[in-house]
Amino acid sequence: MVYIALIILLVGIELIYFKIADTYNIIDKPNSRSSHTSITLRGGGITFPIAISIAFFLGYVSWAVTLAVVLVAVVSFIDDIKPLSQLPRFVSHFIAVGLIFYELNLFSESIWLLPIVFVLVIGWVNAFNFMDGINGITVLYALTAIVSFSFLPINKASLPLLITMGLSCLAFGLFNVQKS
C-alpha cells in the first residue's frame, strides 16, 4: 500500500512540477546539439531527490547517500534554469562522490585507486545527467538495473530502497519515454 501511495505521489508531483515549469518557462529549446526536435520542459528529474528523501525518512537510505543525490539534483536543477559554469557542477559532483565513498568506506582502500575511481564515478554522473532527457534511454536502463539488482540475494536488505527508486523511475519515465 505504501508503494502505491508513493507512485501516485511521485506522478502527482511530476504533474504539478510540469505546470510550474510551463508557467515559469523552464524549457529546453532544441539546437544543433539537442537530441529532441521540439521544446521540452526541463527539471522532470525532480522525482529522484524527492524519492530518495522519502526513502531517507522511511529509514531505507543513509544521510550521506541522500545528501549526495539531493546536492547533485539541486545543482543540476539550477543549471537547468540558468546555465552554470563547470566549477559549481564539478564541486557538487566531487562532494557527492566523496559522500558515497564515505558511505561505502572506500577511503580505507588503496590511495592510488581513489583518484581513478573518483574520475570514473564523476564521469558516470555526468554521462547519466547528460543522457537523462534523451527519450527515456537513461530511465529505462536505470529501471532495468534496479529490477536486476532487486533479484540479487545480497540486496535483500536494500529492497525497499530499490523499489522506491524504481517507482521514481516509473514516474519519470511516464513523461520521459517518447517516440523518437
Rank of each mutant, 00 (worst) to 15 (best):
V177E: 07
F172L: 07
S158N: 07
L162P: 03
A73W: 03
S38L: 12
G12K: 07
I4P: 01
N129K: 11
A145P: 02
L162E: 03
I50V: 15
L10T: 01
I7V: 13
V125L: 15
G12Q: 05
I81W: 06
L162T: 04
S34M: 10
G166E: 09
V125H: 00
Y24L: 14
S53R: 01
I39S: 05
N155S: 09
A73R: 05
T164N: 06
I26C: 08
W112Q: 09
F151W: 14
I81T: 10
D79I: 05
G173E: 05
L140M: 15
T144I: 13
I54A: 04
D28K: 00
F151V: 12
H93I: 05
S108Q: 14
R42G: 02
Y24H: 11
E103F: 10
V125M: 10
L71K: 04
G133C: 11
P49L: 06
T164W: 03
M165L: 14
S38F: 06
F94K: 00
V11Y: 05
S35V: 12
P49Q: 09
I146N: 03
V177Q: 04
I26N: 02
L67D: 03
T138Q: 05
V75F: 11
L162N: 01
L174S: 03
G59I: 09
I100R: 01
G43K: 09
V117R: 03
Y141R: 09
S38C: 08
L120S: 13
V147E: 10
W63S: 14
V70M: 09
Y102V: 08
L87T: 12
V61C: 03
I116N: 05
A21L: 12
I39N: 08
L84I: 11
C169W: 04
V117F: 10
E103M: 00
L159P: 00
S110L: 12
D80C: 10
F172W: 08
N155Q: 12
T164C: 06
I16N: 04
M1K: 11
V139M: 08
L162Q: 01
